[in-house]
Design a binder for these strands. Sequence first.
DNA 1: ACCTGAACACCGTTCAAGT
DNA 2: ACCTGAACACCGTTCAAGT
Lengths: 191, 191
Amino acid sequence: MGTATATASRPMRADAQRNYDRIVQVASDAFAERGVLTSLDDIACRAGVGPGTLYRHFPTRDGLIAAALGGSLDKLAGLSESLTASDDPGAALDDWMLALAEHLRTYDNLPESIAEAFRVDDSPLRNSCRPLTNTTSVLVDRAKKAGVIRHDVDYRDLFALVSSVAWASQRRGDSDADLKRMLALATGGIR
Amino acid sequence: MGTATATASRPMRADAQRNYDRIVQVASDAFAERGVLTSLDDIACRAGVGPGTLYRHFPTRDGLIAAALGGSLDKLAGLSESLTASDDPGAALDDWMLALAEHLRTYDNLPESIAEAFRVDDSPLRNSCRPLTNTTSVLVDRAKKAGVIRHDVDYRDLFALVSSVAWASQRRGDSDADLKRMLALATGGIR
DNA sequence: ACCTGAACACCGTTCAAGT
DNA sequence: ACCTGAACACCGTTCAAGT
């Protein structure tokens, strides 16, 4: 898969594409180091472009976060495929929730940004999460049909629950083992 | 109970006390309207003092939040007394967790601030939460002894769980009924 | 068509000068 | 002892001027 273009329509001019790619690359590093709330001016500066150029490509911070998250989302898409084909719906849902929680911890303050994005129509970050909620919905349905979770649990509840745990464990600076433990505790009530 | 003084030691000069009280009053309103991340300059301005005066009384935002939360904390202290004396440890813990979650939703972004305060030694906001964690600890112990919750659950886990739910329901703009439902779901695993 | 960077508004924070 | 408000640094955002 090649590098992303700004829209699905026409290719960018070569210099614009180069800037776009550099911005995403630098942003990805900056978010990983200092969280998604880090200065956009600083990202533009490190990418060697003016602030206006960054804003042209990414009118909102959400869009830049979504772009920086690209690779991580591709990995989850792969997991999604294998889990929806699994013959153990309970274990598949568990594995999925853990992967989801880990993904939400990719950058500091990412759970906040994603939760906020869900309140905005057409947020690029929200759109980039669509495959995640879709997979959650599918796996929840399969688990219900298999009778391993309660029938009054919505996939949105589960997504919110997993986001919450990711948020809390990030705020506390939890290890992966702690995250796993908290997730089991928080989702124990769905059975 | 009179109005708070800056330290437990000596009373403030009359004009300083007046400023202190006005700042807390204005901050309380501003936090309620626009969340705890609202501009401190704006609070100082509305209270009719210079920014330096606000900083003198409250060197950190946390301190101002803690002061603004005073009344709400007093109410919880009352509930704490009656619940720790209850003869139904399971129901008492449930009631407490709900009250805690509602308290954490007092201001927008309060769960974030409190979670952050727990990473700082001597944060005034953390100190103001001490009675809350204490009560949680007591009620969790009583519930364990009564055999209504699992023995491998820590009171810190529960506090984190309740904070998480408060955070998520605030981000989603949930109603009180939604909060109650999510809380039941998230804490179902402790039994 | 895209980029640059100056410019503006806003906010947190400090501190010298005042009373 | 406390207050004031100017000053500074930083950040998001816009836009006129360039190529």
